[in-house]
Amino acid sequence: GPGLTDLFKTEKAAVKKMAKAIMADPSKADDVYQKWADKGYTLTQLSDFLKSKTRGKYDRVYNGYMTYR
């Protein structure tokens, strides 16, 4: 089956995709945050998933999740 690194890459891609969806349409934020909360994502995990070469690119999404939880 898929190894943990593959799983991480898949999760990371999914999280980034959802983060971009929030940035494009902030009204989606609560739905996405709820999904992440259901998956039990911690802020540390989210921070790892949303690492970007562009500093602060996903800060709004991260901060939103922090206040959501």
Rank of each mutant, 00 (worst) to 15 (best):
Y58A: 01
L46W: 01
A24F: 08
D59H: 07
M66V: 14
P2G: 13
Q45V: 07
G1A: 12
M18R: 03
P26S: 07
K9Q: 09
R60E: 13
V15A: 05
A14Q: 13
K39V: 07
K39F: 07
D25Q: 04
D6S: 08
K9Y: 09
T10R: 14
K35V: 14
K12Q: 15
A29I: 02
V15Y: 01
D30A: 13
A21P: 01
A14D: 07
K39Q: 09
F8C: 13
A24P: 01
S47K: 15
F49N: 01
R55Q: 14
S47Q: 12
A19C: 03
K28E: 05
R60H: 12
A14H: 10
Q45Y: 03
D48A: 15
Y62G: 02
Y33T: 00
T10K: 15
D30N: 13
D38Y: 08
Y65V: 00
G56A: 05
D38Q: 13
L7Y: 14
V32A: 06
K17P: 01
K12V: 06
V15C: 05
Y58T: 01
K9A: 10
D6R: 05
L50P: 00
Y58N: 02
D31F: 15
Y65P: 00
M23A: 03
W36E: 00
P26K: 05
V61T: 02
K20M: 10
Y68W: 15
K53R: 10
Y68G: 01
T44W: 09
T10G: 09
K28W: 05
P26Y: 07
R55I: 14
Q34A: 12
G3C: 15
Y65Q: 00
K17H: 07
G40P: 06
M66K: 14
K17E: 08
S52Y: 05
K9C: 13
V61K: 00
Y33A: 00
V15N: 02
E11Y: 04
T42A: 03
V61L: 03
A21N: 05
M66Q: 13
G40A: 04
K57S: 04
Q45K: 07
W36S: 00
T42L: 03
K57Y: 10
D48E: 15
Q34L: 06
Q45F: 04
T54I: 11
T44Q: 14
G56S: 06
D38G: 07
D30F: 12
M18Y: 06
D30H: 14
M66R: 12
A14V: 09
L43S: 07
G1C: 15
K39S: 09
A24T: 09
W36H: 00
G40V: 01
Y33K: 01
R69N: 06
L7N: 15
D6H: 08
R55P: 15
L7P: 13
G3K: 10
E11Q: 08
Y62P: 00
T44M: 14
L43Q: 04
Y68C: 03
A13F: 06
M23V: 05
K39W: 10
L4T: 13
W36M: 02
D30R: 11
A21G: 05
Q45P: 00
G40K: 05
K20R: 14
K20C: 07
K16S: 04
Q34E: 09
F49C: 04
E11W: 05
V15K: 01
A19F: 02
Y33V: 00
A19R: 01
K28S: 07
P26V: 05
G56T: 06
K16N: 04
Y58K: 00
D25A: 03
P26R: 05
Y33N: 01
T42E: 04
A37Q: 08
L4W: 11
E11T: 08
G40R: 05
V32C: 06
V15L: 03
V32P: 01
K16R: 15
R69Y: 09
Y68E: 01
N63D: 11
Y33M: 01
D31H: 11
K9D: 11
L46Q: 00
A19D: 00
S27V: 04
A21V: 09
M23Y: 03
G56M: 04
L43H: 04
K39R: 11
P26E: 07
K57M: 09
A21M: 13
Y33P: 00
M23R: 03
K57W: 05
D25H: 05
T44L: 12
G3H: 15
A29D: 02
M18L: 07
